[in-house]
Simulated scan of single mutants.
Amino acid sequence: MSAAGRFPPARDDAPLVVFDFDHTLYDGDSGSHLFAWLIKRSWWRPLLALLIAPVFGPLIAFLPTRRVGISGFVWVGSIGMGGRREFDAAIDRYVAAHTDEIRHRLLPVALDVLHHHRERGDRVVIATGAPPELARAILAFVAHEDVPVVGTLVGPRLGAVGALRHCHSEMKMTMLRQAGYTAPVEVAYSDSSADLPLLKAARRPVVVNPKARRIPLFRRVLPPGTPILNWGCPGRGGDPVASAA
Rank of each mutant, 00 (worst) to 15 (best):
G72C: 00
A127P: 03
G159R: 04
V125E: 02
H116A: 15
W75F: 12
F62E: 07
A90I: 08
T99F: 08
W37T: 12
V109C: 03
G129S: 13
L139H: 05
G57C: 00
I79Y: 08
S42M: 12
L153I: 15
I126T: 04
I91L: 08
E86N: 12
L139D: 05
G72T: 00
R103N: 04
R41W: 02
R66H: 11
E145C: 05
S169G: 10
R118H: 10
L164G: 08
V113H: 06
W75M: 09
S42D: 14
T128W: 06
H104Y: 14
S32T: 13
P64Y: 01
A140I: 12
R41Q: 14
W37G: 06
R120A: 14
H166W: 14
G155D: 10
V142Q: 02
V124H: 00
G69Y: 00
V161G: 01
P108V: 04
I52Y: 01
W43S: 10
E170H: 12
P108F: 08
D146S: 14
I39Y: 02
C167M: 08
A53S: 07
K40E: 15
H33R: 15
F56Q: 04
R93C: 10
V147C: 08
A163D: 01
R105H: 12
G155S: 11
A110G: 13
A110L: 13
H116G: 14
L111V: 14
A143C: 06
R45D: 04
F62A: 11
P46K: 02
P132R: 14
L47Q: 00
W75N: 03
Y94I: 03
R120M: 13
I39V: 03
L134P: 00
L106F: 12
E86P: 08
I70Y: 10
R120F: 06
P54V: 02
S42K: 14
G159Q: 02
I52V: 07
D146G: 08
W43R: 13
R66Q: 11
A160K: 03
T128N: 08
L48I: 10
S78E: 07
A143Q: 04
G72F: 00
G83I: 11
A140C: 09
R105S: 13
L158V: 13
S78Y: 06
I138T: 00
I60Y: 02
S78H: 09
A97Y: 07
L111E: 09
R165Q: 09
F141D: 15
A61Q: 06
D100P: 03
C167F: 04
I60S: 03
P131T: 05
L48K: 00
A53N: 04
F62N: 05
H115E: 14
R136Y: 05
G155P: 09
A96V: 08
I79P: 02
L50Y: 01
W43G: 10
D92M: 09
E119A: 12
I91F: 06
W44I: 02
M81L: 15
L158W: 12
D146M: 10
V149D: 04
L164Q: 15
V147E: 09
V124S: 03
T152H: 01
I126D: 00
E133F: 13
S71K: 06
T99G: 09
I60L: 10
A61R: 09
P64D: 00
A137K: 06
L114K: 07
L106E: 07
I138Y: 01
E133S: 15
R165F: 01
I91M: 09
L153R: 15
